[in-house]
Design a protein around this nucleic acid. Structure first.
Lengths: 343, 343
DNA sequence: TTGTAGGATGGAATTGATTCCATCTGCCTG
DNA sequence: CAGGCAGATGGAATCAATTCCATCCTACAA
């Protein structure tokens, strides 16, 4: 009979080759306490020769930890979440852990499916950007801590790290008001999203506090729907003098539409967006935005998770990080208080 | 003695509660062949009541598959790789697998470290964007197939999916030449990167074939070094009439510098970049770029991997996907063949 | 009525590492 | 020189699943 092809060597193979017991090999792998230097060398030689790598599956079967955390986000390609993923991956690496990546497309069903898959993987912990329909029930037998990223978990306290959406929207709106804008249109995307809601609230409250008219926010998805919807605000009696866009893709589209319609920024309409983007400062004019410390937010989330893992205690703390209003000129800065412009 | 707190129920717990053997529970979990519907129902009830989820670690200890693939990229936050990661994650999900994410920052040492970690995880396969110093030795006892993404593995045949870098650079340069450019500066980043080299070659060959002077390519890292280095090419006897930027970040910086120096695009200097970016069409003027089908490239890589997993055969095939030159006007299109401009 | 095919089921080995516990060997101390 | 102590080591149980194999039972055909 042909000798069995052992594709991957196991600990026992190392033990036999080195002429020692399994326990000794295990000791060598794990730092080598109470192992003579001679044995140590022999075992390491055998490990080298066989090309042995301990099987993590077997390890985590016995030990408690899998050294793996999960990361569930709506979209991996999204700039916010890929930046966050990079930061989280880095923190995980520093803690000797790996990251299992999963995407939901904001679908609660997909989210649930991914959570259940990760439960089977016995991950040590999870970082989750919950969908608005997230259901606490899926964690009933999870057995690991969860930290929320960018959004709180709906209807349930949970450790969370996010940016100050309300404050950011407030700052952006105040900036517009300070520069003389009186009729500000808030353009949003999905109104079910927590971040959208918080930003809209911050905007509304500020407009109201300034005694300005509160315009219903405009919800659009793509360029074309935005263009169609925005048209009536560009001229005539409904004409606005500023746009506060609560989301990146919309800011960019608003900019395109204004340019296309030959409406000058900020002279005719001021524009401020939420979330910074690569070329915001290279546009004509450069666009003011609320910048979120994305990597910091993600790092905080990851640190909260690993802290929970190390202490065994979960603190339902919400860490809200300050955002920064970046002045670039698209709101009429530097030209003194804005005067009412002729229509 | 207090009853032991069983944090997570195991298969045996389900078996006991349902009053059946372990093997039966296993059968139920795995599709339920040869299980009476009565037993089936009882087991499922027990599973439900206990909130049981099979332990993937134990599963993959016995079975061959971990249902996990690795993805190692230089940077997770990078637009190219996060888009690729999203596509790969999606293909993996369709195959019932999860993705373990790791980053190298283009450091061979880090790359090696991540590979070894993934070997311990007994991943089924790996998708890797190898660093230029990648060492085939680290896979000696890996025991899983590897597919390269975006770059071939240095000095070793390996299944690979990437864009046609040479062809893309050729198309971009030909476009410039067609539009009358005669002195084209190629701006690059890291000259060790395979993609950079291929693009530079494509550019050089095309310039030479057109009988134009071959300018030494300019290697820069950030905005300031680019500005300093570029200055001498903007005026005087070294003056160029076109820039071919082989990398996104550099394209953007070149655009900024030209604008800042009041050099009109494309009248004074034409500009074409490699890799499309979100606002390329919103700049003044919109910028021509070579667009890579990023998601397709990644999908192909993932599909090659899963095919290897299913058939057990690894084909060392290199899949080169066509890239697309996007005309936007930054190269003087539509104004007919370019004439020599007065200096 | 009986033989048997085949579905249903459980027992027990297996997988790879960890870890408790027992044993053994030197060497130091009284 | 004896008692011990500490370090070194191996045996075997354990973790949670899968799976081979044996057994049992029932229904159907001869």
């Amino acid at each position: 009979m042909a000798p069995k092809v052992r594709s991957v060597p196991a600990l026992m193979d190392v033990a036999r080759r080195a002429g020692v017991g399994a326990a000794t090999v295990s000791r060598v792998i794990n730092g080598g306490q109470n192992v003579s230097s001679k044995t140590m060398a022999a075992v390491q030689k055998a490990i080298e020769e066989l090309g042995y790598h301990p099987n993590q599956a077997a390890r985590s079967l016995k030990g408690a930890r899998t050294k793996t955390i999960g990361l569930i986000v709506p979209s991996v390609a999204d700039h916010f979440f890929s930046t966050a993923a990079a930061a989280i991956q880095e923190v995980a690496r520093a803690h000797g852990s790996l990251v299992l990546l999963a995407a939901t497309d904001n679908l609660p069903a997909r989210e649930r499916e991914q959570v259940l898959t990760l439960i089977q993987r016995r991950i040590d912990g999870l970082i989750l950007a919950p969908s608005d329909g997230a259901d606490i029930g899926m964690f009933k037998h999870a057995g690991f801590p969860v930290v929320c990223l960018d959004r709180p978990f709906p209807h349930h306290p949970m450790p969370t790290a996010l940016g100050d959406n309300y404050g950011g929207a407030k700052a952006a709106t105040e900036h517009l008001v300070r520069n003389g804008c009186r009729r500000i249109l808030c353009m949003g995307g999905d109104r079910k999203l927590f971040t959208s809601q918080a930003r809209v609230r911050g905007h509304h409250d500020t407009v109201q506090a300034a005694g300005l008219p509160v315009l219903a926010e405009l919800h659009v998805q793509d360029y074309f729907s935005a263009e169609a919807a925005l048209r009536r605000y560009l001229h005539g009696k409904d004409r606005i003098d500023a746009i506060f866009s609560i989301k990146n893709a919309i800011t960019v589209n608003a900019y395109r539409i204004l340019r296309q319609s030959n409406i000058s920024i900020p002279q005719s309409i001021a524009l401020v967006g939420y979330d910074d983007f690569e070329l915001a400062d290279a546009l004509e004019p450069p666009i003011c935005v609320v910048r979120q410390p994305v990597a910091d937010i993600a790092r905080r989330a990851a640190e909260m998770l690993f802290q929970a893992l190390e202490t065994g205690k979960v603190k339902n703390r919400t860490v809200t990080l300050d955002v920064e209003l970046v002045h670039r000129g698209s709101c009429g800065e530097g030209s003194g208080p804005r005067k009412a412009r002729p229509r």
